[in-house]
Computed example of a mutant assay.
Amino acid sequence: MITFIPLTGFLGAGKTTTMTTTALALEEKGHRVAVITNDQGVELVDTHLVRSKLDSVAEVTGGCFCCKFEDLVEAVVALTESDGVDTVIAEAVGSCTDLQATVVRPLRRYYGENMVVAPLTTVVDPLRHRAFERAAQRGEPESDLSYLFRQQLTEADVIAVNKLDTIPAGQAGELLLGLRKQYGDAAVVGYSATTGEGVDTLLTAWEAPAGNQAVDLDVDYDRYAAAEAQLAWMNQEVELSAVEGEFDATEWARTVLARLSGWAAEQGAVVGHAKLTVEVGDGEFAKLSLTEAGAEPTVDRTPASAAGGARAVINARVACEPDDLDRAVTDAVAAADQTTGARSSATSPVSFKPGYPRPVHRLAPAGA
Rank of each mutant, 00 (worst) to 15 (best):
I5N: 01
I5C: 11
P6D: 03
L7I: 09
T8V: 11
F10P: 00
F10D: 00
G12C: 13
K15F: 09
K15E: 07
T16F: 04
T18Y: 02
M19W: 02
A25H: 07
E28W: 04
K29F: 03
H31V: 13
V33F: 09
A34Q: 04
V35K: 00
I36Q: 01
T37H: 07
G41H: 04
T47Q: 13
K53T: 12
K53M: 15
S56L: 06
E59C: 11
E59T: 14
F65E: 01
K68H: 06
E70H: 09
D71W: 04
V73E: 00
E74S: 10
A75W: 00
V76P: 00
V76I: 15
G84I: 13
V85F: 07
D86S: 10
C96I: 10
A101G: 10
T102D: 02
P106L: 05
Y110N: 02
A118Y: 03
T121N: 04
V124T: 05
P126R: 07
A131P: 06
Q137T: 12
G139Y: 14
P141Y: 08
E142P: 07
L145T: 14
S146F: 03
V161I: 13
K163G: 03
T166V: 10
G170A: 08
G178E: 13
L179I: 11
Y183S: 04
G184Q: 15
G190A: 09
G190T: 08
S192F: 15
S192Q: 12
T194Y: 11
T194A: 14
G196F: 11
G198F: 10
D200H: 13
L203V: 14
T204G: 08
E207Y: 09
P209V: 11
G211M: 10
D216S: 11
V219K: 05
A225F: 07
A227Y: 00
R254G: 01
L257M: 08
A258T: 15
S261Y: 02
G262M: 09
E266G: 11
Q267A: 14
Q267T: 07
A269R: 03
A269Q: 02
A274Q: 02
G281M: 14
E284R: 11
A293V: 14
A293I: 14
A295F: 03
A295T: 06
D300F: 02
R301V: 05
T302M: 06
T302G: 01
G308T: 10
R311Q: 14
R311C: 09
A312W: 00
I314C: 04
N315I: 06
T330D: 06
V333Q: 00
A334F: 05
A334M: 09
Q338K: 14
T339N: 05
T340E: 01
A342K: 01
A346Q: 06
T347N: 06
S348L: 13
P349A: 06
S351Y: 01
K353C: 12
P357F: 03
P357A: 05
V360W: 03
A364E: 13
A366S: 10
